[in-house]
């Protein structure tokens, strides 16, 4: 399923509610595409990266076009509990273009020839910034689809290779997962499946086994502003396969959550 995101939801669970027991979160090879508004996507990706590094001791490669100016509120509260050594496991890279991002991701296999362990988590923030060129039509739109397939397939192939490499040298650090975010053009409009009207998203869905969708919760919690209340749900082939496989994973792992954005920017999750 989406092990690291589920761990994030569990760690930042709303304590006042009645949380379900979430016991076993099995390491998952599934790559996950977070689809929502870019500011929220970015905060969730940073939480995932810090959780993977600090709690699971995993090396993380984080790619983004936008410089990190501040940490999400949830992390600012926890900074004193985070070890600098663990945070050093996160390596940020700032590719300027799709070509640079492709080259950076394609190079991730190179340390395998040496002694350094490869990353166990690859994060790409804001795929739409790398892929979308405004005002395109016809043949150029087709080029966008090809670019989306190229980066998504390269991420998938890289994670598959690094998983095999990690299994050989440090099984406890495997598998290598991918989490990327994408803001659909229809973001902000309520209802409907964005991939139905956005071909890039349906291409990305071919390669990402799990989609984590963040929709504004129009029926927001009492007292919450609509812009601070979100419906989070996991879907996709990886979720269907996990539910069909009799593994060790807790079958009660929630697939839907409610997320409340606090005034200080911290996120609180409640299983639905």
């Amino acid at each position: 399923m989406a092990d690291i995101l589920t761990l994030v939801f569990k760690n930042y669970i709303n304590q006042s509610g009645k949380p379900k027991d979430i016991n076993i979160i099995t390491p998952s090879k599934c790559s996950t595409l977070v689809v929502g508004e870019n500011v929220i996507n970015r905060s969730l990706l940073l939480l995932a990266a810090v959780t993977a590094a600090s709690e699971l001791g995993l090396k993380v490669s984080f790619f983004t076009q936008v410089q990190i100016q501040s940490l999400p509120g949830s992390l600012q509260d926890d900074m004193s509990n985070l070890s600098p050594e663990n945070l050093k496991k996160i390596k940020f890279a700032y590719p300027n273009s799709l070509e640079d991002l492709l080259q950076d991701v394609a190079s991730l296999h190179e340390p395998v020839s040496g002694s350094a362990a490869p990353p166990s988590l690859i994060v790409v923030d804001g795929l739409e910034r790398f892929l979308r060129v405004p005002g395109l039509s016809g043949a150029l739109q087709q080029a966008e689809l090809a670019s989306a397939a190229h980066i998504a397939a390269l991420l998938f192939d890289t994670a598959a290779f690094l998983t095999a490499s990690l299994e050989e040298r440090a099984a406890e650090l495997s598998p290598c997962r991918v989490i990327a975010s994408f803001q659909s053009e229809g973001e902000g409009h309520a209802g409907g499946d964005p991939s139905a009207s956005e071909p890039i998203l349906s291409v990305l869905d071919r390669y990402f086994q799990v989609r984590c969708t963040l929709d504004r919760d129009l029926l927001s919690a009492p007292g919450a502003r609509p812009q601070d209340s979100w419906h989070v749900y996991l879907s996709g082939a990886g979720i269907k396969e996990a539910s069909l496989t009799k593994g060790e994973e807790d079958p009660n792992l929630p697939k839907e959550w409610h997320m409340l954005l606090q005034k200080n920017g911290s996120m609180e999750f409640t299983p639905v």
């Binding site: 087709q142 080029a143 090809a146 397939a149 998938f156 192939d157 598959a160 071919r206």
Partner: peptide, 19 residues
């Protein structure tokens, strides 16, 4: 083409498979 998933940069892949 990659070894672990279906991808090819040719126009036929973009048109008949992706689109």
């Amino acid at each position: 083409c990659y070894t672990s998933c279906h991808y090819c940069p040719c126009p036929a892949f973009t048109y008949t498979v992706l689109r």
